[in-house]
Amino acid sequence: CHSECLGNCSQPDDPTKCVACRNFYLDGRCVETCPPPYYHFQDWRCVNFSFCQDLHHKCKNSRRQGCHQYVIHNNKCIPECPSGYTMNSSNLLCTPCLGPCPKVCHLLEGEKTIDSVTSAQELRGCTVINGSLIINIRGGNNLAAELEANLGLIEEISGYLKIRRSYALVSLSFFRKLRLIRGETLEIGNYSFYALDNQNLRQLWDWSKHNLTITQGKLFFHYNPKLCLSEIHKMEEVSGTKGRQERNDIALKTNGDQASCENELLKFSYIRTSFDKILLRWEPYWPPDFRDLLGFMLFYKEAPYQNVTEFDGQDACGSNSWTVVDIDPPLRSNDPKSQNHPGWLMRGLKPWTQYAIFVKTLVTFSDERRTYGAKSDIIYVQTDATNPSVPLDPISVSNSSSQIILKWKPPSDPNGNITHYLVFWERQAEDSELFELDYCLKGLKLPSRTWSPPFESEDSQKHNQSEYEDSAGECCSCPKTDSQILKELEESSFRKTFEDYLHNVVFVPRKT
């Protein structure tokens, strides 16, 4: 048989008469490798580009789960590009990614509803959504962080984005990388972005840091009482949809009607710091009717980097990364020049730590249904340095008659930039024990000054392991946590139920 035959053949030295091919099969003959313009397919066939392209389009058009959109890589027609490569849609070739590779997620039936953290986790790592997304989240724990972890990498949506009755959302900033909504599939009414009845939605994105392009379709905003109209108009300008909307697409009466839409800028007039305090004062603000001013709200939190936005980490279910302080308005003076500047002394802060701070007014709604208010920009203030805590785990070892090696770990709280350490030492008198000992005694162990690591005695271990207080009263049991108490109650309830079950099964009433 021919060298490319495997198993047997019907005619000697003829690659077209093989029972099976050793390498690849091409047009009725066995070959060692697939010549151009053919590609290896499933490690035994040679196919042309049209064959591989037909497989790709067949799966793409069917949208069946589990099928493969075949691509070409290293002269092979394979189910998908290997790690580190992405497909070129024009020629199906796998090309190296520039940075992290995109991950295209194809949605069944063309859309997916995100109504819980669990459903959001199914899209973790996706960068391109081939379909439409509907966000409908009523509640949950730590929602802002969970949504950002699972949806934060999405850069492109081919269909539309719909935010509907998501009472738990305060902001859409968890879509931190969303840059493009194509609108290839539109919501009824030709809408590519749809926001309806979101009672706590206050911000779409921080438009000073976020760009969003909507290729096709219109915007729809109705019944978002805490979303200011200025935020919607800003989205029109940034996304390129200005002029597409009709009169009733953006409701003037049901958007922002319960919001404090600040239209003035508060400026800080005085800032002073110490290692654990920050004193702030800002310019006074009074609405047209000074009785509408209820006070100020001061927001602050630790910020290692200057990239904080107002609604980071917030949701309507209680999660809030900001510390909020309510401040009463100052006494009002008739003389504008003698107006008191409101302020606040922030206490209990960490030394040498940068804080993000902003302040906003708290006002009631005027009778004319106009909203007044003022808010400052987010500023960054760093507390002063102070003395560091003591170095940890000092170790001293003498390696000769004239040297001592000293080692330690950095302090747990540096409280500033540590530039150097101060080492103090003092000579001590020799131990009298060394002169009084009889060095001729056998088995004498000389006193040693070398360091030995501390260890816990058996008594201390027994005390720590004991669940009861000892007789001397030195140790006591740790208080039980809520989960331990709940577990004990469940076990007790189970024992009672099981005992009742045994009584009912074992003891049967005697027939009379």
Rank of each mutant, 00 (worst) to 15 (best):
R347G: 03
L252M: 13
S119C: 15
S171F: 15
R176P: 06
Q403M: 12
C105E: 00
G217S: 05
L219F: 08
Y191N: 07
K234N: 13
R369V: 08
I250S: 09
E155L: 09
A145I: 04
E146F: 04
G240L: 15
G243T: 08
L266Q: 03
W282Y: 01
G217R: 14
P388Y: 01
K209A: 05
Y194F: 12
G348T: 15
L180P: 00
D312Y: 07
Q314V: 05
P342S: 06
S208Q: 13
T215N: 14
P329W: 14
L161C: 07
C317Y: 11
N248M: 09
N307P: 07
Y191V: 08
N387D: 03
Y167F: 13
E156F: 08
M297C: 14
Y194R: 08
G240T: 13
P394E: 03
G295W: 15
P351E: 04
D312T: 14
T241S: 08
C317I: 08
D335E: 14
E283H: 07
Y372D: 07
F299M: 10
L406V: 12
P329T: 09
S239L: 12
E237R: 13
N263H: 04
L108R: 08
I250V: 15
R281Y: 02
T241M: 14
S166H: 02
S401G: 13
L212P: 03
P329R: 14
S116H: 09
E187G: 05
H222A: 09
S260K: 05
A195I: 10
S389I: 00
R369M: 10
E187R: 11
E283N: 14
G318S: 13
Q354S: 03
Y380I: 03
E237M: 13
Q382R: 10
L133H: 00
I379F: 06
K350V: 07
R244M: 13
L133V: 12
I135A: 03
K301V: 03
C317D: 02
T323K: 11
D393T: 07
E231G: 15
K177H: 13
G318V: 03
R347Q: 09
I154C: 05
Y300T: 13
D206Y: 07
L212Q: 05
F175H: 01
S173E: 06
S321Y: 04
Q121G: 02
L133D: 00
E264Q: 07
L345W: 06
D312F: 08
S402Y: 10
G240N: 04
N190M: 15
T113D: 08
L252A: 07
G373P: 04
A259C: 09
L133G: 00
P411D: 01
D292E: 15
I357T: 06
N190H: 04
G373Y: 14
D326P: 03
L298D: 00
F268I: 06
R369Q: 13
N142Y: 07
G313R: 07
S401Y: 09
E237I: 07
L180E: 13
P284C: 14
Q121T: 06
F268V: 08
V325M: 13
Y300R: 03
Y194E: 12
E236Q: 15
E187P: 09
L172D: 00
D326H: 01
T361I: 11
G313L: 03
S260T: 09
Y223V: 15
F275N: 15
L169M: 06
D367C: 15
S338Y: 05
K267A: 10
N198D: 02
R332M: 04
A149H: 10
V324W: 07
I250A: 15
M235I: 13
K177F: 07
V397L: 07
Q306F: 09
I327F: 14
T386A: 15
D312S: 08
L212T: 14
Q121E: 02
N320A: 10
K277Q: 02
A259N: 03
F174M: 06
F175Q: 00
Q199F: 14
R347C: 07
W207G: 10
E283I: 09
G131T: 01
Y191L: 06
L392R: 12
L169H: 03
W286N: 09
Q382V: 05
W344F: 11
E237H: 12
L280S: 04
I134A: 08
N190S: 12
A251M: 04
S321A: 07
L227M: 12
L147S: 02
G159T: 01
I405W: 03
F299A: 12
T361G: 11
L123A: 12
L219T: 07
A149I: 06
I163S: 02
R244C: 08
D367N: 05
D328A: 09
F175L: 09
P329M: 15
V238I: 09
T273C: 13
F296L: 10
E246C: 03
K242V: 15
S158G: 06
E187N: 07
N255E: 05
S396P: 14
D292N: 14
V128H: 15
K242S: 05
W344T: 10
K350H: 13
V397M: 12
V104P: 02
Q382F: 03
L107A: 05
A120C: 14
M297S: 09
P411H: 04
F220Q: 13
T386S: 12
N320M: 10
L280P: 13
V324F: 10
P388F: 01
N190V: 14
E109G: 14
D393N: 02
L266S: 02
F358D: 01
T386L: 03
I135P: 00
E122L: 11
R138V: 05
T241P: 10
N307R: 06
G295M: 14
Y372V: 07
E155I: 15
S260W: 10
L345A: 02
G183K: 01
E368T: 14
S173I: 13
S158E: 07
G295I: 11
N200W: 10
A303F: 04
D289P: 09
R165H: 10
R138T: 03
D335P: 03
N248H: 03
R124H: 15
G152P: 00
W322T: 03
N334Q: 13
V363E: 02
K301T: 04
H222S: 06
A168I: 12
I395R: 13
E156Y: 04
L201Q: 01
G313Q: 11
A259T: 11
V170L: 14
E184Q: 02
E155G: 14
K407V: 11
R164T: 13
D257K: 11
P411F: 02
L229I: 00
L293M: 12
A251I: 07
P330G: 04
Q216I: 05
T127C: 08
N307A: 09
E262M: 11
G189Y: 15
A120S: 09
D335L: 04
L108T: 05
L123D: 00
K242A: 07
E155V: 14
K242D: 08
Y191W: 04
T273Q: 05
A259H: 15
L252D: 09
I135N: 00
C105T: 00
I181T: 01
F221T: 11
G140F: 03
Q216E: 07
R281N: 11
L229P: 02
G343Q: 09
E156P: 00
E262W: 06
N307I: 14
Q354L: 09
L107D: 07
N150D: 04
L133N: 00
D292K: 04
T383C: 09
L279H: 14
P284I: 02
K360W: 14
P410V: 06
L169Y: 10
T113F: 07
D206A: 14
E109Q: 04
N334F: 09
S166M: 11
L153Q: 12
